[in-house]
């Protein structure tokens, strides 16, 4: 057993959801990611249960672990009660902790994701927030999405939201003391440390790629290279 597997084995999701995979492939047959990407959850589980550190390191640096959509359809169907989706989550966490995520195009997406989602949580108390959900980043939100964005206060008021106001209700202003508690939870439980790791590793990778951090972040969000999908 190698050091990487030892670290993986401490993850709750590995303890609970890696039993003994017999490589039947049921997970592949129901997997939305396998419909689209060159992706096989059973191969991932097989590598992890091999406990081969060299193969695990390659996996942690690969594009593969970032293809899963975490729908957990695999969890329902696995006849051995494995959960490939949960195992992928443990792999991704270790990839970030080790700084390996920046070695893959899909892993580098961690920077824009973290900035957007953790920013929303710490600044507003929501994972998704209308002030930061911009039409230019989301043209698929349609002509109606554009209309909502342009008339945000009026539309939400009309529909009964309590947008950015005190008291309970839809999109209420979450009190500062509650946001302070979220920040304290981030500090105590490792989220702040993870954010710092992602920023620092991304900064080094951006330097290596000859990009400033803003260009690097934008590229990670927008750029889709070739070779990921089933043709």
């Amino acid at each position: 057993m190698g050091k990487l597997y030892e670290r993986l084995a401490k993850d709750i999701r590995i303890k609970e959801w890696l039993k003994a995979c017999m490589n039947c492939g049921v997970c592949v047959s129901v997997c939305p990611a396998a419909e689209f990407y060159k992706y096989s959850p059973k191969t991932i589980v097989n590598i992890v249960q091999s406990q081969d550190d060299e193969a695990i390191e390659a996996l942690l640096k690969s594009e593969t672990i970032w293809y899963c959509g975490e729908c957990m359809s695999c969890m329902t169907r696995c006849p051995r009660k494995n959960a490939p989706g949960q195992i992928v989550m443990a792999l991704r966490s270790l990839s970030i902790d080790m700084g390996y995520f920046a070695e893959s195009e899909k892993g580098r997406q961690q920077l824009p994701l973290q900035r957007a989602l953790c920013g929303n949580i710490l600044n507003y108390g929501y994972c998704v927030y209308p002030r930061t959900f911009k039409y230019e980043d989301h043209p698929e939100s349609g002509t109606i999405g554009k209309w909502i964005g342009e008339n945000l206060e009026e539309v939400h008021k009309r529909l009964g939201s309590n947008l950015e106001q005190d008291g309970p209700g839809v999109l209420r202003k979450i009190p500062k003391e509650s946001l302070d508690e979220l920040k304290a939870i981030f500090d105590v439980t490792g989220a702040t440390e993870r954010m710092n790791t992602v920023e620092e590793v991304s900064r080094r990778k951006a330097e290596e790629m000859g990009l400033d951090m803003e260009e690097y972040c934008k590229r990670a969000f927008n750029y889709a290279g070739k070779g990921h999908t089933i043709e």
Binding site: D11, I12, R13, E70, M89, R92, S93, I96, Q110, L113, Q114, L117, C118, N120, I121, G125, Y126, C127, V128, I174, S178, L179, L182, I185, F186, T189, G190, A191, R194, M195
Partner: peptide, 17 residues
């Protein structure tokens, strides 16, 4: 507040958080 689930399922926050 948010439960953090959308961030958790994109590995932005650890399971402990």
């Amino acid at each position: 507040t948010t439960c953090g689930g959308i961030a958790y399922h994109q590995e932005c926050i650890p399971q402990e958080t």
